[in-house]
Amino acid sequence: MLEGKFEEASLLKKIVEAMKDCVSSCNFNCTENGISVQAVDNSRVLLISLLIEKDTFEEYRCDRNITLGVGLGSLSKIIGNGANSDYLTISADDDADKLNIIFEDKVKDKISEYNLKLLDIDADLLDVGPMDTDATITLPSADFAKICKDMKVLSESLQIIVTKDSALFQSVGDIGTGNIVIRPKTDIDHPEESVTISLDKPIDLSFGSKYLSDIIKATSLSQKVTIKLTDQSPGVFEYKLPSGYLRFYLAPKFDE
């Protein structure tokens, strides 16, 4: 039996919204420690890794490991019916063919209950970690989203060049070029506005703008995003949850 109660429905809403446009369905692997998902987008360029640790939940129990195959579009529709501030409880029996979803309004005496039909999903798991990292950038997630949107008007690719004291985001396209430089900054009054760059080795990598557009749909999950870059390796874009994370591993592009 799995039972997990979120303090606010908004958290699961944000997680599903961040994933559903690149992955149509995925397995939720539930253990006593929490819920994890690994899924690859249809073009197999972007890998999503989600961990919702037990401590994220107001209440959590999982007596036996179970795998729940979930259509994210369908889950999104059902979750959309609840208010952001509702308690949201998901539950499933050990051999369940459906996921039970309950919203509880915190003010009104109102409980809404839904069942989502589960899917049988046959998916390979990839071994992603741990990876070496040459450069790590942490910046406000909204700033990163704006950079990706702004650069996308120019080109299908975004080049990220990291040196000791700066990160350069550059796009070169038919209509022209653009570049945005960010430097480390410590903001004591507003720590969420700080930018950090740590570097073992300079980095010059290019990523598909289309996939970055999918990644930044996670912006509302966390005020900060951490980008880990390694030469000739997938970039890791991490949004922290209250306890856990949503990570995107994006394969870089190369000159032909």
Binding site: V40, S43, R44, V45, L46, L47, D124, L125, L126, D127, V128, S157, S206, G208, S233, P234, Y249, L250, A251, P252, K253, F254, D255, E256
Partner: peptide, 13 residues
Amino acid sequence: MAQPTISNFFKRK
């Protein structure tokens, strides 16, 4: 530019 897939970097478990 060429776009490799993620399977080019990670092995199956």
